[in-house]
């Protein structure tokens, strides 16, 4: 595969644009300051990721996207952060706050709503840079141990490859100590095709 070095800068722009959009939208939605902490592009061995993510309880939101490029996107919130997100959102609309450990249906729907907005804003950020159309599937939420949350996506990728290109961003709302991580696994050939077209 040949890649024009100038186009590689576009990859960095992509990484930042997607995550910046997420931070911006999360900030508006929850009415708090949110910053994008780290964003990096990695080439990883898929089977190394579960260890990196660990076994702490995590809320994961998965979706697949198709177009130029296609791939998978996963947003991971530590459980505490997901609870805070739900509380902030529900407080905003005058709902009662759930202090229990388990998520209520209301919490789940609040988190799903946030996930919808975050994931579509990430993909919008990419579509803007790449000037392409990207369709996304309905996000699915799962609450489990971190490594179990990511495993279905890794299996799906592992059908074709052992190693993958991943965009990894950390987002942090300092005041409320809300953290989330975004992993995006674009299909490499399609991503390069989109970049070459710019």
């Amino acid at each position: 595969m040949k890649i024009d070095i100038n186009k590689l800068a576009k990859l960095n722009q992509l990484a930042k644009e997607g995550a910046n959009k997420v931070a911006e939208n999360l900030s508006q939605l929850l009415g708090i300051d949110v910053e994008m902490k780290i964003t990096k592009i990695d080439f990883v061995t898929l089977t190394d990721l579960p260890q990196e993510i660990g076994n702490d309880e995590t809320v994961g939101i998965h979706l697949s996207f198709t177009g130029l490029p296609s791939g998978y996107l996963v947003v991971l919130f530590p459980t505490e952060s997901a609870k805070k997100v739900a509380s902030l959102l529900l407080q905003g609309i005058g709902e009662e706050i759930n202090d229990n450990d388990e998520f209520t249906d209301m919490d789940r729907s609040a988190i799903s709503e946030v996930a919808n907005i975050l994931t579509s804003s990430f993909i919008d950020g990419w579509a803007n840079v790449l000037k392409t159309e990207i369709d996304i599937s309905t996000p699915q939420m799962v609450h489990d141990m971190g490594s179990a949350v990511i495993d279905p996506i890794l299996i799906e990728l592992a059908k074709e490859v052992d190693h993958a290109f991943v965009f990894n961003s950390h987002i942090h709302a300092k005041d409320k100590d809300i953290k989330c991580q975004i992993y995006v696994f674009p299909e490499l050939n399609k991503l390069m095709e989109a970049i070459e077209k710019l």
């Binding site: 998965h62 599937s137 699915q140 799962v142 489990d144 179990a148 279905p152 299996i155 799906e156």
Partner: peptide, 15 residues
């Protein structure tokens, strides 16, 4: 072999 979530496509019944 769990079904961690319900994607519309069957591919996720890999468990």
């Amino acid at each position: 072999g769990a079904k961690m979530f319900n994607f519309p496509s069957n591919s996720f019944s890999i468990g």
